[in-house]
Design a protein around this nucleic acid. Structure first.
Lengths: 139, 139
DNA sequence: CCGTATCCAAAGAGATACTG
DNA sequence: CAGTATCTCTTTGGATACGG
């Protein structure tokens, strides 16, 4: 990581002053940009999947570890779907999984700092949605 | 769906209040938050679809109107898929479509201010991806 | 309690051919 | 040139039942 999250915030604050989002371009090689581009696309694909945002929002709301059944009953989704989402989110390092060998067995999921670093972006998206007042977003 | 969640957006904003000094957040009704939440989720679903990010990146790169065949050959995707994405993007107000009755016919697509306002968020996502150096994002 | 296995229905995306 | 019409293959998500 670079000099910490403060420089990221600074870059974010500068925002649209000069152009339309090629703040990553110019100082990075084409391959670098392509790799980051793919990463962002993959992330958006994951976030776009059913219930992923809802799951993350539950974690942002509770700001503490959650158990499988808690999320399941909070969202009302089938266990296999929830299991897949949790696997994906732990695989990308957005959630951690802690299993305790107890009876009854207990497994706790918690949001990582990666996820916490991502939450502000959701805030920016919410700002965007609010300021532009979309109403035709339904396909 | 998502019964029980109240002011999720406000919580997110408070936890990470070090962001770009953007507009006020925290005092919105549950219905308001729910609407914005759905809008953001819909947006992410759209952005997560195949080629959507690539299409928008082409527009961010060229910063000018583009024709159907230009995008088609630039990305190498089938015309029906591209047609769907363009319809979705124009429906959400991210692109405009201008048809000219000429021979040969000419149609130009251009990014709207909504899209331009969205590009910085992509920059934030890129910053996030870079600072956290994801490598396990592939499903 | 925490999942996995299996099956099924629906949506997504590409290839190809064709029209105004 | 700018799409649309089919067709097909794959991916995804849910219901249900069962196992550690």
């Amino acid at each position: 990581m670079t000099a910490g999250s403060s420089d990221t915030s600074g870059e974010i604050a500068r925002k649209t002053a000069d152009d339309t989002g090629d703040c990553s371009r110019g100082q990075f090689s084409a391959a670098e940009v392509a790799r980051i581009d793919g990463t962002v696309a993959d992330l958006l694909t994951l976030l776009g999947r059913a219930h992923t945002m809802a799951i993350l929002r539950v974690f942002a709301d509770e700001s503490g570890p959650l158990r499988f059944s808690e999320i399941e009953s909070a969202l009302g989704i089938s266990p296999n779907t929830l299991s897949e989402r949790l696997k994906e989110l732990t695989a990308t390092g957005l959630l951690t999984r802690s299993a305790y060998n107890e009876i009854p067995p207990r497994v706790e999921y918690a949001a990582t700092d990666r996820a916490e670093a991502l939450f502000p972006v959701f805030g920016h998206l919410a700002d965007w949605a609010r300021s532009h007042e979309l109403d035709t977003l339904e396909a």
